Simulated scan of single mutants.
Amino acid sequence: MAFQNPTRDEIKEILQASTNIAVVGLSDKPDRVSYMVSEAMQKKGYRIIPVNPAAETILGEKCYATLKDIPEPVDIVNVFRRPEHTPPIAEEAVAIGAKTLWLQLGIANDDAAKIAFDGGLQVIMDRCIKVEDSILLPHGKASI
């Protein structure tokens, strides 16, 4: 069966139920898409947890080298890495008990999706979390 993203209603439910977003590949450079998207999500009230072994802090949050280093629950693992790097990230997302693996716009990998899905995670690929949040929750999570 070919992969299909959740419906818009399901994505809305995922966003409403989520607080902590671990961002794998979050750059500390403000001109990068990963930074801009994460900053916008932070301003909407989500907790951004940077996963970047080369930085100490990004967006005022402590960085972690890997998902497994994060000492708190993660709702969404949002990925800004090339598709070929996503299967091990999916394995880590399953290992930490994340609820959703979200591969950003332009990123899709069927192996990563299968790993995450088989591990009980919801999977979204080739979609921008900021765009989806802006469309589905334009006034924030309180506006159900």
Rank of each mutant, 00 (worst) to 15 (best):
W102I: 10
I129A: 11
V51R: 08
I49D: 02
L59S: 13
T7F: 09
V79R: 00
A54R: 15
P87M: 02
V131M: 12
M1H: 10
V23R: 05
L103I: 07
G25E: 08
N5D: 05
I21N: 05
K12N: 02
F117V: 01
S134Y: 01
H85K: 10
P50H: 09
V94I: 04
P53M: 09
R82F: 00
P73S: 12
A108Q: 12
I58T: 13
S34G: 04
D31W: 06
E10C: 11
V33Q: 05
P71Q: 13
Q104D: 05
M1T: 13
A95P: 12
A116N: 09
G25R: 07
E39Y: 03
P83R: 04
E84K: 01
Y35F: 14
P6C: 09
Q122L: 04
P53Q: 11
Q42M: 10
V37Q: 03
C128H: 08
L15R: 14
A55V: 14
D110R: 03
H85L: 11
A22H: 04
V74F: 05
E91V: 02
D111S: 09
P50R: 07
F3H: 05
N109S: 13
G120L: 10
E132S: 14
M36C: 03
D28C: 03
L26D: 06
K62W: 03
N20I: 03
A2T: 11
L137F: 06
Y35G: 11
L105T: 04
L15E: 12
A90C: 06
V94K: 07
A55S: 15
R32E: 03
T86E: 07
Y35C: 08
Y64P: 08
L103G: 09
E56W: 01
D110P: 00
D9R: 13
P53Y: 08
S27K: 05
V51L: 05
Q42E: 07
G97T: 08
Y64R: 01
A65Y: 02
F80V: 10
I124R: 01
I89W: 01
P30E: 02
G97M: 09
K114M: 05
L26Q: 14
E61Q: 15
E39P: 11
D28R: 15
N20T: 14
Y46Q: 10
A113K: 10
A142K: 00
E61K: 14
P138E: 08
Y64A: 10
T57K: 15
R47F: 01
I14F: 07
L59K: 10
I48Y: 04
K114N: 13
I144C: 04
R32T: 13
K99P: 11
F3W: 04
K44Y: 00
T57A: 12
K99H: 09
E10P: 05
C63W: 06
I21H: 04
R47Q: 15
L59P: 14
V77Q: 08
F80W: 00
E56S: 15
A98C: 06
K130Y: 11
P71N: 12
D75W: 04
I144S: 13
I14E: 07
P71K: 05
S143C: 09
A142T: 14
N5G: 07
